[in-house]
Design a protein around this nucleic acid. Sequence first.
DNA 1: TTGAAAAACGGAACAATGTTCCGTATTTGT
DNA 2: ACAAATACGGAACATTGTTCCGTTTTTCAA
Lengths: 200, 200
Amino acid sequence: MSDKRRTQNEVAEGADRRVRVDVQRNLDALLQAAKAVFATSGVDAPVREIAEKAGVGVGTVYRHFPRRSDLVAAVFRREIDACAAAAPLLAASYEPGEALLKWIERYVAFIATKRGLAEALHSGDPVFEPLPLYFQQNLEPALGQLLRAAATAGEIRGDVDAGDLLNAIARLSGADQAQRMVALLVDGLRYGKKASSGLR
Amino acid sequence: MSDKRRTQNEVAEGADRRVRVDVQRNLDALLQAAKAVFATSGVDAPVREIAEKAGVGVGTVYRHFPRRSDLVAAVFRREIDACAAAAPLLAASYEPGEALLKWIERYVAFIATKRGLAEALHSGDPVFEPLPLYFQQNLEPALGQLLRAAATAGEIRGDVDAGDLLNAIARLSGADQAQRMVALLVDGLRYGKKASSGLR
DNA sequence: TTGAAAAACGGAACAATGTTCCGTATTTGT
DNA sequence: ACAAATACGGAACATTGTTCCGTTTTTCAA
């Protein structure tokens, strides 16, 4: 290794070396192909299918994403971010209760388009652990804000955990009657200020 | 044991031939092994593992259960039946609201012990189609009865479909916070007599 | 009791998939 | 233009569902 001093490019960050152009190209193609395939065949689609659609070998897929789930996570990250970003926007445009409802609606729509994602999140397979983590780290604060605002406004009870709700909705989504079931869950939010189901 | 004529055993049904003893033995061993393995490793456990535990070859497993899911279904059928049978018993021993709550509790406990079952039910994999069918055909009437009784008694709203609720609970079960989420759902049952979430 | 036909058995073999490995091709910095 | 570094593609391996078939066990009746 001759010394590789990157002269002026030596940014603070560990920017070891400029990313090779082919890497960037393949990564883009991969993410795009994966997004398309996931939408079509669900998140359980074979890696080979994605690799082929992207015009790369499976080796390339695995170099960028050591685990299948890493690819899934990468593909969804940006959509998750967008969903999280929507929260403050809605909060600024509607009253607390309405904003909460609208955000949940958006969240449901997002989850619904990802066949198999709900299962993956809950599969228990250690390989999917990072995914729900990212989900919650990004979505929980967003929902938490809306939840708190709505509770303060007295529109819903105040003892509901954002993470719980996020998880519950994700599980309910995907079913034919998802809308109805989520609605029921939301009604539960308004039931009262104190626990009361007897199942606690 | 010479005289083998089926004499009085000759039931009307096309009892072509008495089931071979080894068949019965293997079938029992299989169901028992499967039940144990499912409880330990979840319903996704490899068929080979079950076959080995039962002391039979995989060929035997597939002769009795053409699809993996058929075995899963067989193992749960009796438990499902028991769960369904509990409904009228509870209805006879408690007031409508209480009976409903207790039955849901039992249902949750049952689902909880079957790691992966909720996912299987919803997997979309055509191979699991018969399972949810059996579930609903047996559990829906049971829950429906309790639901109707509770609604009549004015303890919950009357527009909740038993199938929906069954499905929703199955999806929620298995999570760490399943109890809390189901409780929230149940609270939703009491919210009012009319739709009100705005998500409908 | 005995022997041949029927039924079931076990497990090797096949197919689909996730993942790893490595010889080859591409890119980069000089 | 060249050599080192890096990435690439896809064959090879591991795991698991499912099928196939030669062998073993059970049944039935003479």
